[in-house]
């Protein structure tokens, strides 16, 4: 999948398009379906995810490399990462509210939602599983988050259109949304094997 000897632009193409976190890898679906009913909120959510993911996975990379690994505490990975991520999101929220009220206004309400966003923990675990170095893991994380943002913005555009379309009674709501996601996933599947990846 992703490895240390891949060029940085290959990592980006792979994470954004070929292995899109939402449509191909099925992560962060709760927020993907929950927040995507308006274009504006999807953009806010996307930005918040990029921001939090970059900080959270850097923190967990450091925690893993300098604390858990040297002291042979690998079995604490799940517990340690989820606690660090939850605490970090709280911290970011408090800091933003005090220091950058404008930015907090724009994405503050999405921050608590991100704690339960499985993609944040998943990326923290994946960069460990792939054995990535710090720089590569940062590139990978940001690319994954950009892939999420791309998917949710495209999806919100389609959903705004679906709202005014005539839909058969029993497909209204979630069923039609899932079918739409299926079609989008099919479109993203078309990127597979791009550049021989």
């Amino acid at each position: 999948m992703i490895s240390n000897d891949m060029a940085w632009y290959m990592i980006i193409v792979s994470a954004v398009l070929i292995n899109n976190i939402v449509l191909i890898r099925f992560l962060a679906l709760c927020s993907f379906f929950g927040v995507s009913n308006k274009l504006e909120t999807s953009i806010g959510m996307g930005m918040a995810v990029i921001f939090v993911m970059a900080i959270a996975s850097s923190a967990s990379w450091i925690l893993w490399t300098y604390l858990l690994l040297p002291f042979k505490l690998e079995f604490l990975r799940t517990a340690a990462f989820i606690l660090v991520i939850a605490a970090l999101v709280q911290l970011i929220e408090m800091y933003l509210r005090k220091a950058m009220p404008a930015l907090y206004q724009a994405m503050g309400i999405y921050l608590p939602l991100i704690t339960t966003n499985c993609a944040v923990l998943a990326v923290a675990i994946l960069i460990i599983d792939y054995n990535l170095g710090f720089l590569n893991s940062l590139i990978y994380t940001i690319a994954v988050a950009v892939g999420y943002t791309l998917a949710i913005i495209l999806f919100a555009g389609i959903r705004e259109r679906i709202n005014i379309a005539p839909i058969p009674e029993f497909l209204k709501g979630y069923p039609i949304i899932f079918i739409t996601a299926s079609l989008m996933s099919m479109a993203f599947l078309g990127f597979s094997h791009l550049f021989g990846l």
Partner: peptide, 16 residues
């Protein structure tokens, strides 16, 4: 991946 979304969509409709 597309099959997962599609089948779940129809299962939700069926359950309803």
């Amino acid at each position: 991946p597309p099959g997962a979304f599609l089948v779940l969509g129809f299962l939700i409709a069926l359950n309803r």
